[in-house]
């Protein structure tokens, strides 16, 4: 996914305390325009607090932040003009229908013409697949439908930034799938900053992520970089044949820190940890292939699952304690 380098959200050393409890401890975030930014963390990490600070619903006790270059404390109303927000549990005006809720929300941004506001609402209902339920009372909506309506409400002003707090966490797999598809559709038009603890979803849709643990950002960056792992660089190699003494030879290379090998269906699977990425990319495969008795059938840098990275950084942070 391509996105430009303009930042829509930038925070520096953001802090928040409730009494003696430090909820956020110097959070630095950089969210680029037109990106989907996953904000990860275990429950209680401070994700919702960060989002509320960005929205001006609570005040930071330290640090600073800007959205669209505007100060999040001083210019909150102007910022909210260009933002759509989906709370963790979407709220609606219960005595209004889905369409009336949309029209009510639109009226915070637009005065008319009424026919065009109605067209906008129709467009939003269509976007989230609720056109046939537009006139139904909200109380008859399922959890997934409410979540989708919540996204429609957040999107009704065509925001430049969507802030979604756990948009799919309360949904069944089908509902989650629907929400993720909507997010994919919206990425053309807006930047999305969303929190979640469903790592699978993040890996599927996000461009960048930040992992928050006990109020501190413990890892952040483009998803590709994050999936490369936070610790050692590991290359994986599948070899056919009899690589005699390969382990010893590799261990003698100054940039190889560790090797391990396992057998699988007549092949040997090698994991080679290195401390010099450039050397390894340039010479590792060449070095192994110098042995003419073997064939390398697979060679790549180890890609982590986000869950592995997540567990690694959370544990590395001593569970934040």
């Amino acid at each position: 996914m391509s996105f430009n380098d303009t930042l829509v959200i930038e925070t520096k050393g953001l802090e928040k305390s409730f009494g003696n409890v430090k909820v956020l401890q110097g959070v630095d975030l950089s969210v680029k325009q037109n990106s989907i930014f996953g904000f990860l963390g275990p429950n209680g990490a401070g994700k919702t607090t960060t989002m509320k600070i960005l929205l001006g619903l609570i005040r930071p006790t330290g640090g600073s932040g800007s959205i669209f270059g505007r100060d999040i404390v001083q210019e909150s109303v102007a910022i909210r003009e260009r933002i759509g927000y989906l709370p963790q549990q979407p709220r609606f005006i219960e005595y209004m229908s889905a369409r009336e809720n949309l029209e009510f929300t639109a009226a915070f941004f637009y005065t008319g013409p009424k026919s065009k506001i109605r067209m906008r609402c129709d467009e939003m209902l269509e976007l989230v697949g609720l056109t046939d339920k537009a006139e139904r009372p909200i109380r008859t909506f399922s959890g997934g439908e409410k979540q989708r309506l919540g996204i429609a409400l957040a999107q009704v002003n065509y925001p430049d930034l969507l802030i979604l707090d756990e948009p799919a966490s309360a949904l069944d797999p089908l509902g989650r799938q629907e929400v993720l598809e909507i997010m994919q559709r919206l990425r053309k038009h807006t930047s999305i900053f969303y929190s979640t603890h469903i790592l699978d979803d993040v890996q599927r849709v996000s461009d960048s992520v930040a992992i928050l643990n006990h109020g501190k950002v413990v890892a952040s960056g483009p998803i590709e970089l994050i999936l490369n792992g936070q610790g050692s660089i590991i290359y994986c190699m599948t070899i056919k044949g009899e690589p005699e003494g390969l382990g010893e030879k590799l261990a003698n290379l100054p940039w190889v820190t560790h090797t391990s090998v396992s057998q699988h269906n007549g092949s040997s699977l090698w994991q080679i940890s290195v401390n010099d990425e450039v050397e390894a990319e340039t010479n590792l495969l060449r070095y192994v292939l110098a042995d003419e008795m073997i064939t390398v059938t697979e060679f790549n840098r180890k890609k982590y699952e986000l869950e592995e990275v997540f567990m690694e950084v959370i544990k590395g942070d001593g569970n934040g304690r």
């Binding site: 109303v77 102007a78 909210r80 927000y85 709370p87 549990q89 979407p90 709220r91 929300t105 941004f109």
Partner: peptide, 14 residues
Amino acid sequence: QSGTAEWLLSKPVV
């Protein structure tokens, strides 16, 4: 309590 106030004030509202 319900979060409606939070949602309303996430709009351009003082």
